[in-house]
């Protein structure tokens, strides 16, 4: 693959764009799989919490919905942040932007669809 030295220098380092803010690349390099184990424990804890909350009917319906929603988002955060190595990339971790845009649009899509399909015509 390494055929063009001129390309290797500049092109490889992503045109000298080291990334900034949340798209700065970062590689997970560990000796012991601490983060994996922490992530596993966290994910189990989050799931079991939401399950137990629902089984024992800790709150009334609406706060309960909010609570398990938050737990699910937290779980997604654990998976994306710890297991999926979100910011691993050569050069800026561009995938972060479409990913979060995707989260935003997906959430909007679901919420808006529910809102539209309620047909609250009002006034009658």
């Amino acid at each position: 693959m390494a055929k063009e030295p001129s390309e290797q220098i500049i092109w490889d380092e992503e045109r000298g764009e080291p990334g900034f803010g949340f798209i700065r690349p970062h590689f997970h390099q560990e000796i012991f799989p601490t983060s994996q184990i922490v992530g596993y424990v966290l994910s189990l804890a989050l799931t079991l919490t939401s399950f137990l909350l629902v089984i024992h009917r800790t709150f009334s319906a609406s706060p309960l919905l909010v609570a398990i929603l938050i737990l699910a988002v937290g779980q997604a955060g654990v998976q994306v942040g710890i297991f999926m190595h979100l910011r691993e990339s050569r050069g800026p971790a561009w995938q972060v932007i479409p990913l979060f845009l995707g989260f935003f649009i997906a959430g909007g899509m679901i919420a808006m669809s529910i809102w539209i399909m309620m047909f609250k015509w009002g006034g009658y």
Binding site: I105, F119, K120, W121, G122
Partner: peptide, 18 residues
Amino acid sequence: AYGTWVHHFFTMGAGPSV
């Protein structure tokens, strides 16, 4: 572009607020 799609079916009557 993602926030305007309902204008294709205003007459479906999803309500004045929508």
